[in-house]
Amino acid sequence: MFIVSLTYTCELSEIEKHLAAHIAYLEQQYAAGHFLASGRKVPRTGGVILAQADSQEQLWQILALDPFKQQQLAEYEIIEFIPTKTAESLACWRQ
């Protein structure tokens, strides 16, 4: 499992111009089963995605499709972790 941290590299006005395309991209990745949760950082300096992929390489390929990445509006950091303990409602994510 992976935590993806996006940090905006531009003004929010530029992010807003590409937000609809970014949301469509997120929906595609949820439908494909790659993304499990996502949302804005507080304060609004970027976002966080909880993702699953076979490898970091595959995840980088998935992230390359993000309009924010394609327009160079954000930097991405990937943290891989193994969820060994979860709330009971998230037991299906344990490894």
Rank of each mutant, 00 (worst) to 15 (best):
54 D>V: 14
23 I>R: 07
12 L>A: 01
48 V>H: 05
85 K>L: 15
2 F>L: 07
78 I>H: 09
50 L>D: 11
13 S>F: 06
34 H>L: 05
20 A>P: 14
76 Y>C: 08
60 W>L: 08
47 G>F: 01
51 A>D: 00
2 F>C: 05
92 C>W: 12
35 F>Q: 01
13 S>R: 06
74 A>C: 14
74 A>I: 10
37 A>M: 14
83 P>L: 02
43 P>M: 04
77 E>S: 15
10 C>G: 09
33 G>R: 03
16 E>D: 11
20 A>W: 13
51 A>I: 04
36 L>I: 01
3 I>F: 14
13 S>A: 12
87 A>N: 09
14 E>M: 02
54 D>H: 15
59 L>V: 15
9 T>H: 11
57 E>K: 08
43 P>Q: 04
54 D>G: 15
8 Y>F: 12
8 Y>T: 15
2 F>E: 00
86 T>D: 11
74 A>D: 02
29 Q>E: 05
35 F>E: 00
54 D>T: 10
51 A>P: 05
16 E>Q: 13
91 A>V: 12
79 I>M: 12
9 T>W: 13
87 A>V: 02
74 A>W: 07
6 L>I: 15
67 P>K: 04
32 A>I: 00
63 L>I: 10
56 Q>G: 09
44 R>E: 13
74 A>L: 11
14 E>Y: 04
76 Y>D: 07
58 Q>N: 10
27 E>S: 13
31 A>T: 07
72 Q>P: 13
26 L>F: 01
93 W>K: 08
56 Q>C: 13
42 V>E: 05
52 Q>H: 06
91 A>Q: 10
17 K>D: 01
58 Q>W: 11
43 P>L: 04
53 A>K: 03
37 A>E: 06
70 Q>G: 08
24 A>Q: 10
37 A>I: 04
75 E>P: 04
68 F>L: 13
7 T>V: 13
88 E>P: 14
89 S>L: 10
42 V>T: 02
26 L>V: 02
66 D>G: 11
12 L>E: 02
64 A>E: 06
4 V>E: 07
37 A>D: 04
87 A>L: 12
88 E>G: 11
64 A>W: 01
29 Q>L: 07
11 E>M: 05
48 V>L: 11
7 T>M: 10
41 K>G: 03
95 Q>L: 12
25 Y>R: 02
25 Y>C: 07
62 I>V: 11
26 L>A: 00
59 L>M: 07
44 R>K: 14
32 A>C: 06
66 D>K: 00
87 A>T: 03
28 Q>L: 13
24 A>F: 12
93 W>T: 07
20 A>E: 08
46 G>K: 03
63 L>K: 01
67 P>W: 02
43 P>C: 08
56 Q>S: 15
95 Q>K: 08
68 F>N: 05
39 G>L: 11
80 E>T: 10
91 A>Y: 06
62 I>H: 00
45 T>K: 09
89 S>P: 08
65 L>N: 00
17 K>W: 03
15 I>G: 00
89 S>C: 11
49 I>K: 03
